[in-house]
């Protein structure tokens, strides 16, 4: 109810929620919107109409046009939505799981173990995320799975930190002492009593991170170390536009469609997650009420 009232008062946040819903629908109905064709290795393998190097403008066969190498941009954008959800949600939920376990263990057992785990977090935090991910993917080789592993390896730390500090705060609350006095086990205390109360700030963090994980994954594809050639991934399609975007002299917008459609897709996708995360944060943060 409170959430609904907030949304109605903040049209921008409402827009974010609707946008996200639209992407969910696109991802669900991808097989209907862009049916797979014969001779495709998998649904994520973008079909191509020939091998001509020059991008072709939108037409009846390819309504968003084709890239260099004749990949169908429409197909890539539609199925790229699924790729984005898979990477965003997958990476974030696994990082969340790892972070939660490590943060919970550190907070609950304290002492040397806590000190050690937090220093490990510090070290992982000291490496710039994008560069670390790029190094790891380059070492593992192209593909969605290596991207997935790299983003998770360097993405779990913020959750560990937040969970740890939340648990440290909650642990001293009376209701936890009461539960302990009843003889609840450590496991039961953490899972049933503490985590449900600690999860909200983490949820905000996770929502915000989903968009940025997709950004990073696409950036890797853009640099040519991410998804395989022809894989339906927005970053990949933007990479295909790189050589063409400045157009020809006298006609700078000649190849506008190579950037416009995949660019808009990724921008709107990330925007929707950020708006939703922003709204969540505002709702949960008392400082953001008017003074």
């Amino acid at each position: 109810m409170k959430a609904l009232r907030y949304l109605l008062k903040n049209p921008v946040s409402l827009f974010g929620v609707l946008l996200l819903l639209a992407f969910v629908l696109i991802a669900i109905f991808a097989p209907v919107l862009a049916p797979t064709q014969e001779f495709q290795m998998s649904a994520y393998d973008t079909p191509r109409a020939g091998f001509l190097a020059t991008p072709q403008p939108p037409s009846a066969e390819a309504i968003f046009g084709t890239t260099e190498g004749q990949y169908d941009i429409y197909y890539g954008v539609i199925w790229g939505t699924r790729t984005a959800f898979k990477i965003g949600l997958g990476v974030v939920s696994i990082s969340l799981l790892i972070g939660t376990i490590i943060g919970a263990v550190a907070a609950f057992y304290g002492g040397l173990l806590d000190e050690f785990l937090m220093r490990v977090v510090d070290v992982f935090m000291a490496v710039p995320f994008f560069i670390a991910a790029m190094m790891l993917v380059a070492l593992m080789g192209k593909g969605v799975i290596p991207v997935f592993i790299a983003l998770t390896t360097f993405g779990w730390m913020p959750y560990a930190r937040v969970i740890r500090s939340e648990i440290l705060r909650l642990r001293e609350m009376d209701y936890v002492h009461a539960a302990r006095a009843y003889g609840a086990s450590d496991m039961r205390l953490i899972v049933l009593h503490i985590l449900p109360n600690a999860i909200f700030p983490v949820l905000v963090l996770a929502t915000m991170a989903t968009g940025s994980m997709v950004l990073t994954a696409s950036a890797l594809s853009f640099l040519g170390v991410g998804a395989e050639e022809g894989y339906a991934d927005w970053g990949q399609f933007i990479a295909y536009s790189r050589n063409w975007i400045i157009g020809q002299s006298g006609n700078p917008f000649q190849y506008w469609y190579t950037l416009a459609f995949p660019g808009a897709a990724i921008f709107l996708f990330v925007l929707s997650w950020n708006l939703v995360g922003d709204a969540l944060r505002d709702m949960l943060d008392p400082r953001h009420q008017a003074h």
Binding site: I238, I245, I246, G247, G263
Partner: peptide
């Protein structure tokens, strides 16, 4: 807030290519 969140959602490679298009080609 709108201005900054738009910038935040822009992949640097999309925004960069746009800048290249506008400030170089055009």
């Amino acid at each position: 807030r709108f201005f900054t969140i738009v910038g935040w959602s822009f992949p640097v490679y999309v925004f960069g290519l746009l800048m290249l298009l506008i400030f170089y080609s055009v």
